[in-house]
């Protein structure tokens, strides 16, 4: 299964997920995405920027200082829930997801964690 199919399987399993994108964090570029709606490159670029900002100082500095490396971030605002996961294997690999507020976070995070590690393992 390729990266687009893996991302699409997440959308299929979680209708509350509107965008699931695989990004190269070092290049700040979305490499592949799946979406339940029409999305523009602008949308994807913004999501990638927000992923980068969420894993940035000062909050990351506090997390690392207190508890070690941070591989997961959740950002909630009035419009959506954004979940960003970084690979523990390939530090530049990340999944950036935009979901409705009704998403069941526990199972969703487990699913995208597994998906990300499969993608990183495939190289």
């Amino acid at each position: 299964m390729g990266v687009p199919e893996r991302l699409q399987s997440v959308i299929g399993a979680f209708p509350e997920a509107r965008i699931v994108a695989f990004a190269d964090m070092s290049a700040r570029t979305v490499l592949s995405s799946a979406a339940a709606e029409d999305v523009t490159q602008e949308h994807l670029d913004r999501l990638c920027r927000e992923a980068k900002a969420s894993f940035d100082d000062p909050l990351e500095g506090l997390a690392v200082q207190a508890f070690g490396d941070a591989y997961g971030a959740i950002v909630i605002d009035a419009s959506a829930v954004k979940i960003f996961l970084r690979s523990e294997v390939e530090s530049s690999d990340a999944l950036c997801c935009l979901c409705d507020h009704s998403i069941d976070l526990g199972p969703f995070v487990a699913k995208i964690r597994a998906t990300l590690e499969e993608i990183s393992a495939d190289g």
Binding site: S54, E60, A63, A70, Y71, G72, I74
Partner: peptide, 9 residues
Amino acid sequence: LCHVLGATM
């Protein structure tokens, strides 16, 4: 706005 950061969450 809520922002949470952690290892595994």
